[in-house]
């Protein structure tokens, strides 16, 4: 019984941390915009929204996988 409770707590903490990180990040970059017309992508092709989407997907996928594998 202890492991499922710990797992739920871990999942909540992980998803919460991700949400707060992205919220802080986007709040800052939308408040203080650098000139967008001359923006250069990471390594020339990686969009910032791809990184954010990857963060969300990996966190959720890992959490779901942990539930499926452990319980």
């Amino acid at each position: 019984m202890l492991i499922p409770i710990l797992l739920i707590l871990l999942a909540l903490a992980s998803i919460g941390f991700m949400a707060v990180s992205l919220w802080f990040f986007y709040k800052y970059i939308f408040s203080y915009r650098l000139p967008r017309g001359q923006y250069q992508l990471l390594l020339g092709f990686i969009h910032l929204k791809w990184i954010s989407a990857a963060y969300v997907v990996f966190t959720l996928a890992l959490t779901i996988w942990a539930f499926l594998l452990i319980l």
Partner: peptide, 21 residues
């Protein structure tokens, strides 16, 4: 064991993405 491994991996995953941000 799996709970410990998943916890550690989640920590590193968050750390990595926060470094990117």
């Amino acid at each position: 064991l799996l709970f410990g491994v998943f916890s550690a991996y989640m920590y590193y995953l968050h750390r990595f993405f926060n470094k990117l941000l």
